[in-house]
């Protein structure tokens, strides 16, 4: 493995834009989801949960910061994590559709979180073995955090799925609605294939098998039904910039102050 600590030298087989794109996908997922979860602070169902959700949001934004920082270094065009977060337009974001969905009620938020947490655990577990040393280091650290996130969202899924009739219905509806965004998580494109070939990215189809097995186990223990499979829609994915209308509104709010004072320090 190459890897003098601190040097940014990808293995020679990887076109630099592949690594950059791969890092944007990882970073944007967590930036968008962290932003969404941070919206709960002050509005949670109980004080203890305001604190828990804030922790999760902080971890996600922290992971995004490290990933986007590395992306900027790899790109080598002088963009840091703030430049990437605050001065890219919607079509240049590389997050998946799942994370840009609005928070909805607590049930929707928990289901969205659970589906993503399982994905993150499996993803970072694979990336901890990445041939790219900085990415592997970020993944190893993040893995500890996301295992805890999964413990939280999984426990809530059990409590809501097997709580009251109302809670059961709400999370079943949320699961049914969000399920259509999950095939995209495992749809490999050229970037994914190149990253896998270079040993820096994961095998998405192997990940999918692990993911579905964990998800099914918790869903069934929560007395919920697995939704029917939904095929991936043809065409460009959000990973390639084809987002929903939600992202634009989210970014408008997120970026407004930074963009109103370009070049300023904060």
């Amino acid at each position: 493995m190459s890897g003098v600590k601190g040097s940014v030298t990808p293995p020679p087989a990887v076109p630099p834009n592949v690594l950059f794109e791969a890092l944007l996908r990882l970073g944007d997922d967590r930036l968008v989801l962290g932003h969404r979860v941070s919206q709960w602070c002050g509005h949670g169902p109980i004080l203890e949960e305001d604190i828990a959700l804030a922790n999760i949001a902080l971890d996600l934004v922290g992971q995004a910061t490290m990933l986007l920082h590395l992306a900027g270094e790899v790109e080598g065009a002088g963009r840091d994590e703030d430049a990437l977060a605050y001065f890219r337009d919607e079509i240049h974001f590389r997050n998946c559709l799942l994370v840009e969905q609005p928070n909805g009620d607590f049930g929707v938020t928990i289901v969205r979180q659970f589906l993503f947490d399982v994905y993150s655990v499996v993803m970072f577990d694979a990336l901890a073995r990445s041939a790219h040393p900085e990415l592997a280091a970020i993944a190893a650290k993040a893995l500890k955090e996301v295992k805890y996130h999964l413990r939280h969202s999984g426990d809530w899924l059990l409590k809501l799925g097997d709580g009251t009739i109302e809670s059961h219905d709400r999370v079943q509806r949320a699961l049914n609605t969000l399920w259509r965004f999950t095939p995209e998580l495992f749809a490999a494109d050229d970037i994914d294939r190149a990253a896998l070939a270079a040993g820096i990215g994961p095998d998405l189809s192997a990940m999918q098998a692990q993911w579905i097995s964990i998800v099914r186990d918790v869903v069934e223990r929560a007395t919920l039904a697995m939704p029917p499979d939904v095929p991936l829609r043809a065409g460009r994915t959000a990973r390639q910039g084809a987002h929903s209308e939600h992202l634009g509104h989210m970014l408008a709010e997120m970026q407004i102050v930074a963009r109103s004072h370009p070049g300023a320090q904060w």
Binding site: E48, I51, A52, N55, R151, H152, D155, K159
Partner: peptide, 9 residues
């Protein structure tokens, strides 16, 4: 839940 909350708080 108590353990998780205790860790967070």
């Amino acid at each position: 839940q108590a353990l998780q909350n205790a860790r967070d708080v």
